[in-house]
């Protein structure tokens, strides 16, 4: 059965600081939401596959975030951990409409 995606508003686009992350909790799920320098919004699971570091507090460079715990480099676009480390985190689709940011999460 196809799972329904829930479109959840998480704030105005202007609430998200550029080249920084923000922690968004939807129910039990913690999501790291980033506004990139090109203005796009990207969302990934707020948990580094290494030791569970909070990615929302990492340094953002281009389309990557560096985990604040041990500097793992993770793509905020596809969630892939960059070499030499390995792994991946869940990604979430986001939408911007009328200056409002939405995140699409499974019910």
């Amino acid at each position: 059965m196809e799972q329904m995606l829930n479109r959840v508003p998480i704030g105005a686009l202007t609430d998200f600081p550029e080249r920084l992350g923000k922690t968004v909790t939807v129910g039990q799920k913690e999501i790291a939401v980033f506004k990139l320098s090109n203005g796009r919004i990207k969302a990934i699971e707020n948990k580094c596959p290494h030791r569970g570091g909070v990615l929302a507090d990492g340094m953002v460079s281009g389309e990557h975030v560096f985990c604040p715990m041990h500097d793992w480099k993770i793509s905020v676009v596809d969630g892939k951990v960059q070499a030499p480390d390995e792994g991946c985190v869940q990604t979430f689709r986001t939408e911007i409409e009328d200056g409002q940011v939405y995140i699409l999460v499974k019910d």
């Binding site: 829930n6 959840v8 600081p17 920084l20 923000k22 968004v24 909790t25 939807v26 129910g27 039990q28």
Partner: peptide, 14 residues
């Protein structure tokens, strides 16, 4: 707001 606030969305909010 930018650095210290978290966004909390309870489930079943819509």
């Amino acid at each position: 707001k930018e650095l210290y606030e978290k966004v909390n969305v309870p489930t079943g909010s819509n």
